[in-house]
Design a protein around this nucleic acid. Structure first.
Lengths: 217, 217
DNA sequence: TAGATTGTTAATCGATTAACAATC
DNA sequence: TAGATTGTTAATCGATTAACAATC
């Protein structure tokens, strides 16, 4: 349907940041912005922004720039973020709870519809209106609710088997917070593995060269 | 001190993944591995792995490959992950608690030493041995404990002011989980902004092209 | 020794930047 | 109209891949 050129991974990984930045600008009441100003704000080049956006179409106007609201709508369409994807969450431990209670799913156009756990003490609870079911109900509930996305917050050893169960149950994508990485080629649906430790290690790497006693530059 | 060539961002962002993968191999009892086998496992090319590692030295052996244990030690040195960095955590809400209770800081060679909040009901509690102090004690405790890293789990509007306070108090790097991105150039120390939503949006983008009814390829 | 595999150099490929005509 | 800024083409830069001599 869409008339998109080939879109590189580098471009795709910048799209969410464009979207976040523009949403923020909208909140601040900014109605339009040039690639130059947006670049300054995001620490990119104006060229890169224009090049990136041109993968998907021409959304700007010569001599004027881009309408912030219009660009937000376009990015929502491009990212598929307005599609109202339905999500289920597996594993209602500390992290699962933190996500259910705090994470703004709607910002990404995602709606959590159910959670699952094996712990009897948490089954039957609800978090912000999302009920926690017994894991054994997974297939039945998937049939009923037809979720698109699974949020995986289960222990490492449960990750792989549950992922396979989810795919059999018709899940279309997995957002994986467990320590066990899932290999997309083995799972068969898109997977985003989230590893907190990666960014902490990168931070450690970058701190390494700074002076612990504040004498250096 | 070290004899490193210029190391690109692309290489740095792969280092944590090398480290995780090798740690996993060690757990599985694998003692040595060739760039070819590691590449297959990580979905990279052997060339790229050898090229990446050669930024830091020659750790392999012709005809043999790499010793997993030796490479782990080298990566720990390269990443600065064995430096036993001291961390404090700000904002003991759901996410802060989840990190204190569940996150394996020691995997990254980081040791949490204190947490801070403004909520009187949580001040005085401890999580896995980490005491929660009143935020007003921050400067006093920093003087005492000399933390290297701050883990920021505070609300958006508190992020910027607290970050500046932390830098004044001698913090060397910020691991920022708040929704408010921190600009490194304005803060003055290395910052890693963690945005859960970015990976969820990328997942939505990639799901977009798959068929919701399982008829397509 | 023969086979395997490294580290490195050269070749290719892709991504970013620069430049500019088009035009609002 | 004159000034500003886009979308796109061309030039540059950097990163990945391929090839291979060195050597365990």
């Amino acid at each position: 349907m869409e008339n998109e050129k080939h879109v590189s991974k580098a471009v795709i990984s910048r799209l969410p940041r464009y979207y976040r930045t523009l949403r923020q600008l909208a909140v601040e009441g900014v109605g339009r912005i040039s690639s130059k100003d947006l670049a300054a704000q995001m620490d990119l080049t104006a060229s890169q922004i224009r090049q990136d956006l041109s993968c998907f179409g021409g959304f700007g106007q010569q001599g004027y720039g881009y309408s912030v609201d219009k660009l937000i709508v376009e990015l929502e369409r491009i990212l598929g973020v307005a599609a109202s994807q339905r999500a289920i969450l597996l594993g209602v431990g500390n992290l699962g709870r933190a996500l259910l209670r705090n994470f703004d799913f709607s910002f990404c156009g995602v709606r959590p519809v159910a959670a699952f756990d094996t712990d009897e003490t948490v089954i039957g609870c609800d978090f912000r209106g999302i009920p926690v079911h017994a894991l054994r109900e997974l297939e039945r509930l998937c049939e009923l609710e037809r979720p698109d996305i699974a949020v995986l917050c289960v222990p490492s050893d449960a990750t792989r088997p549950i992922a396979e169960r989810l795919v059999r149950a018709g899940i279309r994508g997995i957002w994986n917070f467990s320590n066990e990485s899932l290999r997309e080629d083995l799972i068969g649906v898109p997977v985003e593995n989230v590893h907190f430790s990666d960014s902490l290690m990168k931070l450690c790497y970058r701190i390494k060269d700074t002076d612990p006693f504040e004498f250096g530059e």
